[in-house]
Design a protein around this nucleic acid. Structure first.
Lengths: 230, 230
DNA sequence: CCCGTATTCAATTAATCTATTGAATACTAG
DNA sequence: CTAGTATTCAATAGATTAATTGAATACGGG
């Protein structure tokens, strides 16, 4: 049974081949990890390789695949090449891939909830509850990601103390109020680690199971620290 | 340089491997074509194979990949297996893949606009303009997709005349008013073919470069013909 | 102008994916 | 129960992709 219009096939083949470029870029776990990292802030190849546990050459190749799919862009700055997410629509798209996977794969929900249950922190605070508590003044919001990620975009009102510096900078946090820590997102453990540290020292602390992407996807603005100020 | 918390890696690897299931499912042009077809209406394997120009066995395998990624669902009905899109969130996601590709790939825009330019119909009417004209009573909306796709969901107010029947059913169309034809979407040629037929017989006709997915993505409702009525 | 560093390129191997073919299964009609 | 049909399974060959390694390129600092 031939298709209705035979001359249609070349168009469809060409068009869907273009669409598949996006799919192919998303087909590797490591590339998805790199993409989510780049949703937090621009990074050099070397940083990305370390963060995603890849060799530099391998990271470079993955990044070039992402760039060929126009999901990220590269810019040479002096000695380093800085990669960043291509456009905010890509950020939203990456977020939606995660949401879709969480909605449809019980395996994913199990893997993460079991991991966090085994550690300490149970479910974590959702993004809406987070907003409510901060608005109501019930909690202080703590951003434990690396400083450059905070600078590139953080939830308004959040304090920045990167996880490795937390123990030495406890003085900056209020003693009595509840602290809600957040990090890159649901697959990131930094907020849970921060909560463990804080509770051990007698703080009231909880973790958010959401990150800046969830915040942004609600249509809410992030605060950005303009670079270049000393 | 080891990552901050070594016990983090297994969680991340497992989580991103789950996300990559979605990417892998989208990595093949043929699977994307099948997905878009299933966004129009449920279909049997045989129908899908014919529509996407695949062998039945090959189509079956692709469909099983899509099912493993939970993007489509299968149901056995008598002699046939009927595949359908998994959930409306999947429909929205597929649409967004197309939008992202159109936004980012000049190649894709070129391929489609050149194809239609070479045929007749230029750019086509966008989804917003479409709504305006129909609302204003300036145009009659014509759905030229197969009847089962019309039944599964069509733009409210549209008349259904599948393309192969168009020549013999011209009497159902008004002589003087403008007719806007739509089909599956921007990679589908049926609306352009319909416009050619109509113009040749003296009708005023234009084509929409959008389909039911674009309509639905705006948050607007589709009309559904309940099945089972004789 | 040369050196050290960051990144990319090129080549290899192992692994995965696609399309094809023919057979097996599951169901309906008679 | 049998015959016929729709779908899936299994096996294969060809193509594509990922990770590894070592070399090449490009840039800034001295």
């Amino acid at each position: 049974m031939p298709p209705a219009s035979p001359t249609t096939r070349p168009l469809k083949d060409a068009a869907y081949q273009q669409l598949a470029r996006i799919g192919k870029a998303l087909a590797s776990p490591k590339r998805l990890e790199l993409l989510e990292l780049l949703c937090q802030s621009p990074r050099t190849v070397e940083e990305l390789a370390a963060l995603a546990d890849l060799s530099v050459a391998n990271a470079s190749q993955h990044l070039q695949v992402l760039r060929a799919a126009r999901l990220v862009e590269a810019e040479k700055r002096g000695l380093h090449v800085s990669y960043r997410i291509g456009h905010d629509e890509v950020r939203g798209f990456v977020h939606q891939v995660r949401l879709l996977a969480e909605a449809r794969f019980a395996e994913l929900r199990e893997v993460t909830s079991e991991f966090f249950a085994r550690r300490d922190a149970g479910e974590g605070v959702g993004i809406d509850e987070l907003l409510r508590r901060v608005r109501a003044g019930e909690a202080v919001l703590l951003d434990v990601r690396p400083a450059e990620e905070y600078r590139a975009g953080h939830i308004p009102g959040a304090i920045s103390i990167p996880l490795p510096e937390l123990k030495s900078r406890l003085g900056e946090l209020p003693r009595r109020r509840e602290i809600v820590a957040y990090c890159r997102g649901p697959f990131c453990v930094m907020a849970a680690d921060a909560v463990a540290v804080l509770r051990q020292r007698g703080y009231r602390a909880g973790r958010a199971n959401a990150g800046v992407l969830d915040w942004q996807a609600r249509g809410w603005r992030l605060d950005i620290d303009r670079e270049g100020s000393p």
